[in-house]
Computed example of a mutant assay.
Amino acid sequence: MLTTVREARGDDWPQIWPIIQNVITQQETIPYDPDMIEPDARRMWLLPAPARVVVAGDDQVLGTANMYANRGGPGNHVASGTLMVAEEARGRGVGRALTTDMIEWARRSGFAAIQFNAVVDTNTAAINIYESLGFVTLGTAPRAFRHPTQGLVGLRIMWLEL
Rank of each mutant, 00 (worst) to 15 (best):
R71M: 11
D35A: 13
V54S: 05
V119W: 06
I20M: 14
M102R: 10
A49R: 15
R42F: 08
P48Q: 00
S109Q: 12
N66A: 05
I19A: 04
A89N: 01
G57W: 04
A51R: 05
R52S: 10
A69R: 09
T64R: 08
H77D: 00
F135L: 03
A89Y: 03
R42L: 01
A86N: 07
R107Y: 06
M36Y: 10
P39T: 09
R43P: 09
L47H: 09
T29Q: 09
T137Q: 12
W105T: 06
I103Y: 08
D101T: 15
A65I: 06
A49S: 15
S132Q: 02
W105E: 07
V85S: 02
V54Y: 08
G81Q: 07
L138W: 14
V136M: 12
T82F: 09
Y32F: 14
M84C: 07
F145A: 01
N66M: 12
G93R: 07
I24Q: 03
N128K: 11
W17V: 07
Q115H: 08
V78E: 02
G91Y: 05
P50I: 07
A65Q: 09
R107P: 06
T124K: 13
T149C: 06
G95H: 03
Q21V: 15
G81K: 07
P39D: 14
G91M: 01
I20N: 05
E28K: 15
A79M: 13
N123C: 02
Q15F: 04
P34T: 04
G57V: 00
T122N: 05
R42V: 01
G72D: 10
A65P: 06
W17L: 11
V54E: 01
R52E: 09
M102E: 00
V53C: 02
S132Y: 05
A106F: 06
H77M: 00
L98A: 01
A118L: 07
G139E: 00
A65D: 06
H147E: 05
E88K: 13
D59E: 14
I20D: 02
T25E: 08
G134V: 03
T140F: 08
D33E: 06
E88A: 11
R43W: 13
L133S: 01
P74R: 13
N123S: 03
Q60G: 12
F116G: 13
S80W: 06
R71N: 04
R108Y: 11
P39K: 08
H147K: 08
A51Q: 07
T100W: 11
A126L: 10
R143Y: 00
V120Y: 06
R90M: 09
T64W: 08
